[in-house]
Design a protein around this nucleic acid. Structure first.
Length: 432
RNA sequence: UCCAGCGUGGCUCAAUCGGCAGAGCGUCCGGCUGUUAACCGGAUGGUUGGGGGUUCGAGUCCCUCCGCUGGAGCCA
């Protein structure tokens, strides 16, 4: 008898198969047991009828508890009433293990503190299964997007020196007797180096921010995809971002629509995500906010509520570009038409999911960069290799970073990014 | 770090003005041949987050500590 994964059962109607998995729930009548089974690929119901199986098998089924690990053998039967279209008429159950304790997650309305404490078991529930499958598809499609376009994967280091956007938010650790090392909060500077060697490059990996942020959009450890392209300027950069985001959404609709439906995501809203995306300058965004009753003025940050207010004007992600120079990082290229703003953009996801991309054209002239480093009060010496990139064969280049969990949260319609990653590191929570 | 809220059986919550600590779910036992958060009957289950105080009497009021949640700042 062949071992078949539940996701493939529809191709085996009428056959006797073996399913290796777990019992996620059991409902019983006096003479029939309904075994809700999962095996990591999907869910199926096993039927054990007293009148058609040996008494011993019926009694084994009776003793099974939630999250018993079992190998079930039986006949695949088409069944219109079943959610997946098929059921398993059980002929044999091989018990691997029956827990002694009751499974703690046994109803739909546990509190978030309890669930996070039991994340290692929470992962087994249907909702988390669907979310993590979508996350997998999203990451897969991000890689596909770049690979199809001739980008080269460049893995940037996680241990770094102190350079980056802002040294205050870095996790610090001892690097033997060498001094301090820091966990990367971006791989951008390394990608800038790599794009001068390989043209079009990207990375995808974990980043760390030592910010005491406690909101639905923040994790301490989160995954970021960054891209950097030599000779790309502001417009090329925005176009690449639009293509990436719409590609990912399209691929998820193609490959993971079942999961989105199971998560009760309104996929109609995702079907609208095709380029071009609406654009607004920072300056116009401030005017829009003022018209909507915010007291924000030019030079102020655009906070969470303001982001949501801007995003709700559009049914696609909106590109907010050309922020004031003083608000943004030192390496961003000033706009030749208005040196008070820089050639950067943030992409805000619809439905209040906030910033999913931060991007800019980078300063490529050495003198300008040196000037900006000084202006920001940064230590020129720590930027020695970064300045080298402007010494040897410097060219205009641009790039961006996309927060994977925020994209997952948006596409899945989650209320909080902590469900968008297998084991979330949030403020003060590192176990399990 | 700051602001706000919450902490009561395994879980989610209730408890009137300060006056006998309760319900639903889970679990266990019994019943039921089509259940999808099954249903019906019964049983089990408590140092009300810790410490201190006020009071004849505190889950409830006060102080303090701890934990959690959301938000601000900052960011993807």
């Amino acid at each position: 008898m062949d071992w078949i994964y539940i996701a493939q059962l529809r191709k085996h109607v009428g056959e006797d198969v073996e399913v290796r998995g777990w019992l996620r729930r059991k409902r019983s009548s006096g003479k029939i047991h309904f075994l809700s089974l999962r095996d990591g690929t999907g869910f199926v119901q096993g039927i054990v009828e007293k009148s058609s199986v040996p008494e011993e098998l019926f009694n084994i089924a009776k003793k099974l508890k939630m999250e018993s690990s079992i190998i079930v053998r039986g006949t695949v039967k088409r069944e219109e009433r079943a959610p997946g279209g098929v059921e398993l008429l059980v002929k044999d159950i091989e018990v691997i293990s029956i827990p002694n304790k009751e499974f703690p997650i046994n109803k739909p309305d546990h509190g978030i503190d309890f669930l996070m404490d039991h994340r290692h078991l929470w992962l087994r529930t249907q909702r988390q299964f669907h979310i993590l499958r979508v996350r997998h598809e999203i990451i897969k499609s991000i890689r596909e997007f770049y690979n199809e376009r001739g980008f080269v994967l460049v893995d940037t280091p996680i241990f770094t020196g102190s350079i980056g956007e802002s040294a205050g938010n870095l996790f610090e650790l001892d690097y033997f007797d060498y001094g301090k090392a820091y966990l990367a909060q971006t791989g951008q500077l390394y990608l800038e180096a790599a794009c001068m060697a390989l043209g079009k490059v990207y990375n995808l990996g974990p980043t760390f921010r030592a910010e005491k942020s406690k909101t639905r959009r923040h994790l301490i450890e989160f995954w970021m995809n960054e891209a950097e392209v030599a000779y790309y300027q502001h417009e090329d950069n925005i176009k690449l971002q639009e293509e990436l985001v719409s590609y990912v959404v399209r691929k998820i609709l193609e490959n993971a629509e079942d999961h989105l439906r199971a998560l009760k995501r309104d996929t109609k809203r995702l079907e609208k995500i095709v380029p071009p995306f609406p654009r607004i300058t920072y300056t116009d965004a401030i005017k829009l906010l003022q018209k909507k009753g915010f007291s924000t003025s030019w030079g102020d940050d655009i906070g969470g509520d303001e982001e949501t207010a801007i995003a709700e004007e559009f049914d696609k992600p909106v590109v907010v570009e050309k922020y004031p120079r003083k608000m943004k990082a030192f390496y961003m290229q000033p706009d030749p038409e208005n040196p008070d703003v820089v050639l950067c953009d943030d992409m805000l996801a619809p439905e209040g999911y906030g910033e999913i991309i931060g991007a800019s054209e980078r300063i490529w002239q050495k003198e300008v960069l040196v000037e900006r480093i000084k202006e920001f009060g940064l230590d020129l010496d720590t930027y020695d290799w970064y300045l080298d990139l402007r010494e040897f064969g410097t060219v205009p280049h641009s790039g961006f970073g996309m927060g994977v969990e925020r994209v997952v949260a948006w596409i899945c319609g989650l209320e909080h990014v902590r469900e968008a990653i297998p084991f979330a590191r949030t403020l003060y929570r590192i176990h399990p």
